[in-house]
């Protein structure tokens, strides 16, 4: 027959230890502030506008014929883009184009790298 002795007090002591641990855990968590990347930081970091704008400008130059006309004009315009990109957008931009006369296709290669985003595209269209 069990009596009131000191033997069972280790159960209550285990209970006490667990409770105190919970309190300490709560104090530690209360000291913390959740950090992480918010959605808008990630969106701002990806330079969607830079890539879309560069593509739109190269397509404008293509439609106006600059890429297929006077080579001095073409190289000065493309160098404008490269220089201004490096100075104002911190991005390396390289654009080149060529024509495949056998398959009647025109190609434009666009390279953009601003250290966080690296974009490469080969755009092709039929050479009428």
């Amino acid at each position: 027959m069990a009596r009131l002795t000191d033997e069972a007090q280790w159960i209550v002591m285990m209970g006490f230890i667990v409770s105190i641990t919970i309190f300490i855990l709560a104090i530690i968590i209360g000291e913390s502030a959740l950090i992480g990347k918010t959605t808008s930081e990630s969106v701002l970091e990806f330079s969607k506008a830079d890539v879309q704008d560069l593509r739109a400008e190269i397509m404008t130059l293509k439609d106006k014929g600059i890429l297929y006309g006077n080579p001095i004009d073409k190289s000065s315009v493309l160098e404008d883009i490269s220089n201004l990109s490096l100075q104002r957008r911190n991005a390396v931009v390289y654009v080149t184009n060529w024509t495949d006369k056998i398959e009647h296709m025109r190609y434009i290669y666009i390279h953009f790298n601003n250290g966080i985003t690296d974009y490469n595209e080969v755009y092709d269209e039929y050479d009428y």
């Binding site: 069990a2 002795t5 069972a8 007090q9 159960i11 209550v12 285990m14 006490f16 667990v18 409770s19």
Partner: peptide, 15 residues
């Protein structure tokens, strides 16, 4: 009163 049972219940309630 049973010793272990009471102690167990007390500890559980405390936690």
């Amino acid at each position: 009163g049973q010793l272990y049972t009471i102690e167990g219940v007390a500890a559980g309630i405390l936690m």
